[in-house]
Structures are given as structure tokens and as C-alpha cells.
Design a protein around this nucleic acid. Structure first.
Length: 239
DNA sequence: GCGACAG
DNA sequence: ATCTTGTCGC
């Protein structure tokens, strides 16, 4: 019997050679971007495992806690949870968010009791100034299909979508649609969806809608958010 | 040069 | 992200 309340815990390390300067991080983005797979449609929305990841910080202590929570896309029931605590790997620089969160996120994904499904990240994928946001970074490094669902607009502006759930408007970069402002709840502020890796924008949006039957944010993100916050508190309560 | 700027 | 009480509304 799998105990859905069980949470596997791990420690995250900052990898050898991890960028320490913005210049180095930009170079890594350029290198990894060549490995992006934008040709796949991704897994069918509403079926199979879907894994949400999120992180919480204690900048005072330079500690970050990441959580990965896998849900059954059909029922939205939790099938696996894991957390990873470690040092903050990079300062917050808009456009370089991945360098701050990725080590802990990967550790949490690896600590899951079962294989992750499509990864839902809290942030952007292709809708990024250099087309390589957090969701692209996580996708390329894990090889998993990944999407980005952000709560706020980044550098790209979008017209307000219609008032109904499912209404959307494009986020454009150089005339190309790289993401969408998507209304997940009627009359509520939209979320900003973009493909990360091995998934199409249409399917990224379909997955997002399948994960938001009730709340604005995907159930995956809500679960991961709650988990990484408690993990951070528990980590701080010690040492 | 000055702001804006995912989390 | 994080600091933070009550409050209006479904």
C-alpha cells in the first residue's frame, strides 16, 4: 500500500561547475537551448502522471526547499511526494530564475517514489526573453515533458483574454506565439502558460485546464507550494 | 541613464 | 519569493 501522506526527503547540492556569474549562466542557457525538443505534442492531457514542482526560500539563511508532487491527471489524487533542501544556488536575476531553483528541483524529482510525469513548473518556459525559462531548463536536464505556468506576466505583454474559463490571448516574441494568457476561472486573473520541452503550446494549455477544475492555479502547483513551504519551516526549525 | 522584471 | 490582519464575498 502506498501511503499518500508519505514524503520522501533528500538533500540538494549545488553541482560542480554551477554558474556563479550572469555571464556564465547566459552561456549555459545558450548551450542548453540547442537541446530543446519542440517537435512533440506531449502526453495526452487529463491522463497519466503529472508532477508539480515549486520552491520556497529562506534568504536569511540561504536555504531553499523544493517540493515535487505527482498527481493522477484523471483524478487529481496525489500519488507521490518528495522534498529536497539545500543551499540557494544563485541570486534572483529576472531571466535567470532556473539557476536559483534547478538543483533543488532536480533533487526533489529524483527523490519521488515513482517516475515523474509531465512536469508543471511555477514560471515560464519559451515565453522568456531568450526563449529558455525555468520549464525549458528543467525539461532539457531531465528529458521530461515540461510546461511553465506563471502567476504574473514577465517581459512579454498580452491583451486581456475574454472573461470565460479557457479564453486566451497570445504572448508574442518577434511575432511568434510563445505562450498564452489563459483564463482558468471565469472572471479571475489569467495564468501565463508556455511550453517548456517536449510538449506543444496547445497541449500545455489543455493540461493546465485539466489541472484547474476549481482554482486558478494548477492543482500540481498548489500541492507543491504547500509542501515546500512546510518543508522549509521544518528545515529552519532545526539547525 | 532610468525603470521593469517569472520566483 | 517574503514581510503580514482583517475583511469582503461566494
Amino acid at each position: 500500500m502506498t501511503d499518500i501522506h508519505a514524503v520522501t526527503a533528500a538533500t540538494a547540492e549545488v553541482p560542480e561547475g554551477w554558474p556563479t556569474t550572469e555571464e556564465a549562466a547566459l552561456a549555459v542557457q545558450d548551450e542548453l537551448r540547442a537541446r530543446l525538443d519542440l517537435g512533440e505534442q506531449g502526453p495526452p492531457p487529463g491522463t497519466g502522471p503529472v508532477t508539480g514542482v515549486d520552491v520556497a526560500y529562506d534568504d536569511e539563511r540561504g536555504v531553499v526547499a523544493a517540493a515535487a508532487v505527482t498527481l493522477d491527471a484523471a483524478t487529481l489524487e496525489v500519488t507521490g511526494r518528495a522534498v529536497a533542501v539545500g543551499p540557494v544556488a544563485f541570486p534572483y536575476v529576472p531571466g535567470l530564475l532556473a539557476f536559483r531553483e534547478v538543483p533543488a528541483v532536480l533533487a526533489a524529482l529524483e527523490a519521488l517514489p515513482g517516475p515523474p510525469g509531465l512536469v508543471v513548473c511555477d514560471g515560464y518556459g519559451l515565453a522568456h526573453p531568450r526563449r529558455f525559462g525555468l520549464a525549458c531548463h528543467v525539461g532539457v536536464l531531465t528529458g521530461l515533458p515540461a510546461v511553465g505556468v506563471a502567476k504574473n506576466p514577465f517581459v512579454l505583454a498580452a491583451d486581456p483574454p475574454g472573461p470565460g474559463r479557457g479564453d486566451h490571448t497570445p504572448l508574442r516574441l518577434d511575432g511568434e506565439e510563445v505562450g498564452r494568457a489563459l483564463r482558468t476561472r471565469a472572471g479571475v486573473k489569467p495564468v501565463f502558460v508556455s511550453a517548456g520541452h517536449r510538449v506543444s503550446l496547445d497541449n500545455a494549455c489543455a493540461h493546465t485546464l485539466a489541472l484547474t477544475p476549481r482554482y486558478r492555479l494548477p492543482e500540481t502547483t498548489r500541492q507543491a507550494d504547500a509542501l515546500c513551504r512546510t518543508a522549509l519551516k521544518e528545515a529552519s526549525a532545526q539547525r
